[in-house]
Design a protein around this nucleic acid. Structure first.
Lengths: 199, 199, 199, 199
DNA sequence: GCCTAATCGAGACGGTACGTCGTGTCTTCTG
DNA sequence: CAGAAGACACGACGTACCGTCTCGATTAGGC
């Protein structure tokens, strides 16, 4: 498992120092050059302690990552579906293009392909909730008649998130806000929605 | 550089053995567990020879990859823009979901984040041409009035490829043909195109 | 110090469990593979407790060792110097060739070279008393005229004990009783003693 | 095995640097504190190289040791048995009491108890030849009538070497030359030899 | 027969070293 | 003379113990 086994005796000091060191090193050298050895040295923590609470470098960074983004992207419902989607996608763009989280996330995505537990954790803790939140917001819009009743919501979410990931994994520059607005408009139009609020 | 230095004396036998061994190992163990050491041993080739012709494991696999897909996805123009886009995207889906190329490509995408030369090579040899081909085909459709004159073509291409990458990097199941067809329809509709040929 | 600090609250149960576990492990794996960690686990005792009462693994085994041999080799004076020396040396041979004490003693001798406190303790508790006992018995024999007045007693004791240690540290098979008898005779003759009782 | 597998490609430079570093560290810190890690660092050699050619720290030091003493103690036959034995035993005393070889040898003796291959190597390369040489010299003396025909030669050799080991392993001060001379005289007398040349 | 402090088990902690593996370079021998 | 074989210095891996350090939970004496 990725989430640590329960223990009452765990040192919060070591935990924080480890996560902070991992993020720092990710910024300085890039995920691929970060080693457990270096994290331990930077954090003033023993390697044993790291291996006691995490299964891999990826698990450490995932925790650092989720820690930082807990509650960071709540999905507020302003009533304006286009606005809310823009807000949501913009936060994702920022997430993946801000140091040190962007490089860290790219690394986590890499590691997912060889580490099943990590893949599962990413799905459950990061991707799943955001995907669901976007789908829920679209569903509400559909119920309110802002988008047609037969709209394919999962497809819409993929069309929204897809380009963000596309740019991130191919190291292309992240979308600016205007591009995101245009993307949201296109997706809504593709569903058959009436042109809504101005981007 | 990724593309090998020219040489008149290069052994084609060693080249093929190396690429084949790399793909085999990728299938068996996954990209992350493939090592130059193991490729050399499997191929019956010395490490020195590998390092002479490639800069990294990623470069070997990229060559194995492009080798296999040279001319594999020509962009035929049938006159039906929706059909041609479906064909194109389906080939990309197949590319990323077929053993051993799917796992290999995931690995290459990982390595791109730490290997600038590899990133450049991927862009030039794989991503760029395909992106351009899709854009060109859309441009022709625009010229023929099948899609509006003000359509944002790069955005459209990103909306088409984005979901493919999204699923690939997040280890979600690849799209089936119906889903791809629906995606293409949605993208065309988002551009303001008239509903076209039935999927 | 090697001998434990005095305490009224010390748990005899823990003490015995520790010593027994240490001897068991010494038999099973050999001194070099015995660790404080393993002793604690086997004894159902915490490492802290071991470190509270002993300074090192060597100290634990020395105590286990001396515990077992307290009063085990009294030097009885039968009036027959050769017989008494044979008895004495035979007990030393048995000491060093009996499981688990032989391997434990070999380990203690090893550790002595890096642990001054242990070296001192071995000298004071084991080697010194036995050497003195042998020398005393020889002195009495000298006083009774059984050996010449100018006999070099310390040299004699070294000649008696030397071969026992020689075989022990070089992992040669221990002397049998006939060999010990012959050794004692040779040593006595070397001092210029009249040939004594038959072996 | 202790003696390295044959190879034509072995780097003599690395070999010497390793042996020298091992001896230096043995002098500085004592055998027990010497680590393969430290030997490698000091020698500017990789740990892998050490593990390639030796099985353990003990094997390294044994080779350093035997290297230094190859041909160092030839058994010259002057015709005077007492003189020759004194020479021989004195060389053993010096061997075990000279930095860095004394501490190194103590460590090797320790390790022998847990490392069967090392034990065998010590017997074959160091102890066996010296024991045989001493026994041979005594045999010649016996043939020449300098000692009785029924003399127990192995026992004599043990009586000669025993005290040397006794002092070495118990960390007592080494014999001086007068003590060695007296020891040799006693042993010869114990065999029934006529008092020989003056010490 | 309580009360309270030392002692106990358990085990997390910062470390050091282990022995192994992979990297990328370099050398030697062979076809 | 390119290529296989593989030794080399380096550095990270993940593990084992070290000796120190909290933690509650007994568990004795002194009251």
């Amino acid at each position: 498992m990725i989430t640590p086994q329960s223990s009452l005796r765990r040192s919060e000091r070591s935990r924080r120092a480890t996560l902070d060191a991992a993020l720092e090193l990710c910024t300085e050298k890039g995920y691929g050059r970060v080693t457990v050895e270096a994290i331990a040295a930077r954090a003033g923590v023993s390697k044993k302690t790291i291996y006691r609470w995490w299964t891999s470098k990826g698990a450490v960074l995932l925790e650092a990552f989720t820690d930082a983004f807990v509650g960071a992207t709540p999905f507020v419902d302003t009533g304006d579906i286009a606005l809310d989607l823009r807000t949501h996608i913009n936060s994702a763009v920022r997430l993946t293009s801000t140091t040190p989280y962007g490089p860290a996330y790219a690394g986590i995505l890499s590691e997912m392909h060889y580490d099943d537990a990590l893949a599962e954790a990413v799905q459950e803790q990061l991707v799943g909730p955001r995907f669901a939140a976007a789908e829920d917001r679209l569903r509400k819009a559909r119920e309110q008649g802002q988008i047609p009743a037969d709209a394919d919501l999962p497809l819409a979410v993929e069309m929204l998130y897809g380009p963000v990931y596309y740019r991130h994994v191919l190291r292309k520059p992240p979308q600016d806000e205007a591009t995101v607005a245009s993307l949201v408009d296109h997706v809504l139009r593709s569903l058959g929605a009436e042109p809504g609020s101005p981007g």
